[in-house]
């Protein structure tokens, strides 16, 4: 008998212009030249490391953030994407992330923070983003922050592999 497919649901959030859709498309091997601001949400279903990943990418504009909660249910992993060159909005970025980490329906989710746009001059490092977001204070979730560039693809795979490993070790240990 065929084994049940192991599925994971991954939710990708972050401020507008952080690069969420670009991360998603680049990871999925798609063209990233014509991406426009997301006003709704995108879903990709892809196979990786013998898991079936359902990745949800929801628009990040301020007026859209109240919709995020409609996508929390059953989330195994949260990817928080940061525009590392957008120093002006780091405080806003921290507040939104802090609010998410208090959400009961995300309580069991592993957190991966992508310090994106490392290809831009003036981008803060992952270490600097980590400090600005005070990630070290997070005790409620497994978390990791990684430098990345969605445009070049740098570190996307490494981040995703860590996320999947962490989720798998939490929810599929019975097998």
């Amino acid at each position: 008998m065929k084994q049940k497919e192991k599925e994971m649901r991954i939710l990708m959030l972050g401020l507008d212009n952080a690069g969420k859709t670009t991360v998603l498309k680049k990871f999925n091997g798609e063209d990233i030249d014509t991406i426009s601001p997301t006003l709704g949400f995108n879903i990709k279903t892809l196979e990786h490391l013998s898991y079936k990943l359902n990745i949800w990418d929801v628009g990040g504009q301020k007026s859209l953030r109240s919709y995020w909660r409609n996508y929390f249910e059953s989330t195994d992993g949260l990817i928080w994407v940061v525009d590392s060159a957008d120093r002006m909005r780091l405080q806003d970025c921290k507040q939104e992330l802090d609010a998410l980490l208090l959400e009961e329906r995300l309580a069991g989710a592993t957190l991966l923070v992508f310090a994106n746009k490392q290809d831009l001059p003036g981008a803060l490092t992952a270490e600097e983003i980590k400090n600005a977001l005070e990630l070290s204070n997070i005790k409620t979730h497994h978390w990791l922050i990684l430098d990345c560039s969605a445009v070049s693809g740098e570190n996307l795979l490494q981040g995703m592999d860590w996320l999947i490993d962490d989720i798998a070790s939490r929810i599929f240990t019975m097998d």
């Binding site: 997301t38 006003l39 709704g40 949400f41 995108n42 879903i43 859209l64 919709y67 409609n70 996508y71």
Partner: peptide
């Protein structure tokens, strides 16, 4: 279209 509107949910 690839992108979904919130009303779909």
């Amino acid at each position: 279209s690839e992108e979904n509107r919130f009303i779909y949910t």
